[in-house]
Design a protein around this nucleic acid. Structure first.
Lengths: 243, 243
DNA sequence: AGCCTATTCTTGTCAGACAAACAGTCAAGG
DNA sequence: CCTTGACTGTTTGTCTGACAAGAATAGGCT
């Protein structure tokens, strides 16, 4: 195939090589979760590089969520952790979407696709606890005179509870990112209204209907309702939205 | 709620503060894509911290895929980039997967949901160019004696071509991340087979059927076929997969 | 103009240093 | 006995200065 068979010599910064070795040790389970890493001094000896290099490698792994710490100054060594990997993946996905020049309708379509599927799941395998959470959030939304910020927070809780009921972690992860990406638009639209009350009332009604459909095990209806719910809101207030 | 009302004093490493400012400047578009960052020396002056701190902040951002470079030694300054966010997100998702925070079936379900929807779109609004790309990839896969790496690359091209035809940026980006995150598993499963040829032949047949369904404008069939295609593969070879 | 060379610039890496925080010990005092 | 304070060693966070290697640039020469 190739004439020479030679390939460019690969040269990578030492910090990258160190981080690769450590990452492999972590995800392969070689370094157990919860165990603290060796001290930086020990790592300099094991890898035979300077502390500068070790520290840069640790920053890389902390950015990926594979190591605890890094968000606060502490003399404790970082520990191998899986706690932050999910949020780290979510942040990475968020960057992809924010930098990917995604039109708002595309984001909304994706959200509806995921949330519709999640609601069908939730209706098929209802989780009483999650449904209780959703009812709770609905109650918060119905408090008279609630301000739009609190309303929106409860709105988010409502959707999170229902999607959490479906139990697909991947759906949950991506939907969380989508919600964050859309939250800014939503809040801006609500905040700019002079008389948000009737809109909020309609949203509450729609939420109630969605929850009822899920509780009845009617996944198809829940899906249609949430589509109408979200699409209706964005269609009605598209003018007040940026981009 | 709390008795004292006191909260722990918040202390963050300088490298984190620097990386936060830079990240915000990047994702907000304040630093345009493609523009090179100031030199490390200039950054030390602007942030009034040492080069050590600047460098750790840069490693964090490179790990998140927001800055180019970092993977090879070079004297070029890193540039603001969105090219690497997808692969970075995929790596994060892969870590999440390997650490068991998200089960493999959940990711596969998500992929099928997205890809099925994309195929329905593609069938409804066929794009001749994308279909030609898909046919091309299919032809590559059918070359006798192809090795699994090349086969997998063509496989990826096939799915990308079909999904790209749908034209939803968000679907496209998220699916790209999912594919990259799952690619490791797939390749490992294929590489471990002693006699992959019959499996590859079956995959080619399934791809052919999917493409035919899309070309006929039969989105529902395409969706069902791709679901069976992916699910069948993972079900048959789940034993050879890690985790 | 085109080419070659010297200089400068930038990144990657290292060594050494210091401050702050934390854990542990230990003595003094209630 | 328990609390307080002082002391010590360890670890991380940060800074400074230095050097090598590659890349860019300026300048001179043909």
């Amino acid at each position: 195939m190739t004439g020479s068979g030679f390939a460019p010599v690969e040269r990578a910064p030492l910090s990258l090589l160190v981080s690769r070795q450590l990452r492999e040790a972590i995800v392969s389970g070689d370094l157990a979760l919860g165990t603290p890493l060796p001290t930086e001094k020990e790592l300099t000896e094991q890898f035979a590089v300077s502390r500068t290099t070790i520290r840069e490698a640790l920053r890389i792994l902390q950015a990926e969520g594979l190591l605890s710490g890094g968000d606060t100054v502490s003399t404790k060594r970082p520990t191998v952790s899986s706690e932050h990997t999910v949020s780290s993946a979510a942040r990475a996905l968020e960057s992809v979407l924010r930098l990917g020049e995604v039109p708002l309708p595309d984001l909304i379509d994706l959200r509806l696709l995921l949330e519709g599927a999640a609601l069908e799941d939730a209706a098929a395998h209802p989780d009483p606890e999650a449904l209780a959470d959703a009812r709770e959030a609905l109650a918060v939304m119905s408090v008279p005179g609630i301000d739009v910020d609190a309303f929106h927070a409860a709105d988010v809780s409502f959707h999170i509870a229902l999607v959490g009921a479906a139990g697909n972690r991947a759906h949950h992860l991506v939907l969380g990112v989508l919600r964050d990406a859309l939250a800014g638009h939503l809040l801006a639209a609500l905040s700019e209204m002079e008389h948000p009350e009737p809109v909020l009332a309609r949203l509450i009604d729609e939420h109630t209907a969605i929850l009822a459909a899920v509780e009845d095990g009617d996944g198809a209806s829940a899906r249609d309702l949430v589509c109408a719910h979200v699409r209706g809101f964005y269609a009605a207030h598209a003018g007040t939205m940026p981009s």
